[in-house]
Each structure stands twice: as C-alpha cells, then as structure tokens.
Design a protein around this nucleic acid. Structure first.
Lengths: 195, 195
DNA sequence: GAATTGACATACGGAGCGTATGCATGTTCA
DNA sequence: TGAACATGCATACGCTCCGTATGTCAATTC
C-alpha cells in the first residue's frame, strides 16, 4: 500500500522544494537562509538535512523540478509546429522566453552552474537539453539539414539563447533588444541549414 | 612625485588581487576564506576591506584584471589573421580555448555572473565582449557580411563559445568533444555570412 | 615638530551551516 | 497485541566566516 507515512513524507519534501524555489529565486542561492526558508514551510532545518543532505542537495531538487517543467513545455511547442525546422526555431524562441523568467534565470542559469558546475554533469540529466538535442538529431536524420553533431549544436544554441536572455533581462529596453537578439539568433541557426 | 607611499599601496592591492585570483580559481568564490586569502598575502582582512570594500569588490577587481588580459589576447589574434572574417573565427577559437582554462572558467564564467549578475552590467565594461563586437561591426561596415546588430551577434557567439567550453571541460574525452564543438561553431558562425 | 591623514591590524558581534542528539510516531514481528 | 525497532523531524551546539568599529603607527603637511 502507498502508506500514509510515505505520503506525508512526499508532501514534506514538496513543501521544502516549493519554499526553496521561491527563496532561491528571490534572494539567490548564496543569500537564502535555510532557517527562514524552512520556517516559511512550517518546518525546521532538521527536515531539510534529513531529506536532502545539505543546501546543495536542495538546490539539485529544485533544479530537477524546473528542468523537467521546461522540457515538457519545449516538447509541446516543438510538436505543434508545421515543419520540423519551424519546430526547432519555435523551441528556441520558447527557450529564450523561459530564460527571461526571473526564477529560471536566477536558479537554473546563474546559481546552478556556479554551485553545481556544468549542467551536463548534474545528476538530474538536463531534460531540457536532451529535448533540443533530440529534435536536431531528427532533422539530421531526415536530411533536412546537413550532418552535424546534434548535441554540439544543441549546446551551442542553448548557450547562445541563454546569453541572449541575460542580455535582454538586464537591458533598459527589453523589447528592442529582444528583437535584435531573435534576429541574430535566426541568422546563426540558419547556418545549420546551408549546404 | 610618485610617492613611496602610493607605490606601496599599489603593491598591496596587487598582492591581494593575486592571492584572490588564486584562491577563487582553486576554491571558488563562495568557499574562499578571506582570512586565509589575506594571510597568504602576508596581510589581514583589514587591508582587504580598506581597499576593496567587501568580498564582491575584490572579485570585481580580479575579474577586471582577467577581462583585460583576455581582450588583449583576443586583439592580437584577430589582428594577425589574413582576412577580417578569418580574424573573427580565430578570435572565437581563441576565446574558446581561454574559456577552457580553469581559472577563467571558474572565476569569469561561473562565479562572476552568479555573484555580480549579467556581465554587461559590470562596472568594468567587459573589454572582451567589446573586442568581438568591434570586429563584427567592422565586418558589417566592409560589406563582408550582411547587416546584423554587432553586439547581438557578439553576445550570442560568446554565449555559444562559453557553453562549448563548459562542455569540453567537463567531458571525458576533451579532444573529440572540442572537435565537435568547433565544427558546430563554424556552422553557426557561417550563418552570419549567408545572403 | 605638531597635527592630520591614511594604510593596515586587532577586536567584536552576528549570522549561517552542518552535525549530534533527542523525541515521538509509525512499523514489524513474536 | 505489545514490545522492539526504524524513521521523520525538532532542538541544541560548535565552528567558521563576514562586515564593522576601533586602535595604531608611519608618512605627509604646514
């Protein structure tokens, strides 16, 4: 049976992840206090260290959750497009828009790499990157674009999008900068298409 | 007169920056102890807070130094090339190689953005980005590539290079991965050339 | 040569993390 | 069913570390 006990435990973990997600997004990982965070969830640091080991462990859990959500959103966008190529472009547009969300930017793009190192080494295997890699692989297989290492292309495009997002977010005139970034991005992406 | 006093002061600051650079590179910003760091330079935290205000101030000084060095190296590489377009590609190859150096990767690419936010907002105006932007602007002005916002293109390419470097650095077989990354990068960059 | 400035050291307070310990509830098994 | 055991979580403690306030001594100024 599921067990009332195990269910409570999952609820506790969920509460902690929820509180951490908010705290990390608002304050940043380094300045987030574990005491405040857990108190906000009606718990103490005891629960935290019991379930997640340490502060970094909690960050990993938060990142895994966000990464999963992002991958799901990307897959939907990519599936909806008329052609696979449009699907890829739409996915990256969506990726850039997500990277503009403060929560994602702060936790996944800034603190994540600094605290846990390169994303590809994270225990939770970057579902988001896997999604775009998969799509590029399909394009190559269909002959829609000349052969290229799918993971390499995906990583470079992700990196470009990420930086574009940081730029747009820090800008004084986000709309104008976003337009420039999207234009330049399309130019780069079309480099994959040329013979 | 120059003043023996002022000279000593510069030497002190230089010693602190040097020690910080090493400590940040080895331990990472968050885990670097100011006590140990300053003691290693034969000083105390007093000197540090007197000259740099706080821990972040010291990081800014370190980053400014590294950024300046990188920009200088890039300029040399770009100047040496036979055509402006080759110059740009060479610069990015050099950028990627620099991003593979642990010190640069740790301090400038991981901790820097996490602690200080988007690089474009740093007091020390990203000399490195300015260099690549300048070169792309020249290419557009010469008609070598179709019009594109130079800063946007530079930022996207920098972002792509940076991610490629993280990937290569974390890889088990760096040479193979580096080759893939460079190939994919060339493909993207050539997107700027198409009509 | 007295006064002032500034470079740097020392001393102090507060906050935060991780661990060791305690408790109370749920589970297992004779 | 009740006693032994395991586990989710709280409490208590020590340690490290940052930032500031205060002190000191040399150098410069007049």
């Amino acid at each position: 049976m599921a067990g009332r006990r195990a269910q409570m435990m999952e609820e506790t973990k969920a509460k902690l992840v929820r509180a951490a997600r908010q705290a990390f997004a608002e304050t940043g990982f380094a300045d987030a206090s574990m005491d405040e965070l857990t108190a906000g969830a009606g718990l103490t640091r005891g629960a935290l260290y019991h379930h997640f080991g340490d502060k970094k462990g909690l960050l990993q859990a938060v990142i895994a959750q966000i990464d999963g959500e992002m991958a799901a959103r990307l897959a939907v966008v990519g599936e909806r497009a008329e052609t696979p190529w449009r699907g890829l472009l739409d996915e990256y547009r969506a990726y850039l828009e997500m990277a503009l969300e403060p929560e994602i930017q702060r936790i996944l793009l800034l603190d994540g790499p600094a605290v846990l190192g390169d994303p590809s080494r994270w225990p939770t295997q970057n579902a988001c990157l896997a999604e775009t890699t998969r799509r590029i692989r399909a394009l190559v297989a269909d002959g829609a674009i000349p052969p290229v290492d799918p993971e390499a292309a995906a990583r470079l495009l992700n990196g470009a999008s990420l930086h574009a997002a940081l730029w747009v977010a820090a800008s004084d005139e986000p709309e104008a900068v976003l337009a420039k970034a999207l234009d330049a991005f399309r130019r780069l992406a079309e480099g994959l298409v040329r013979a």
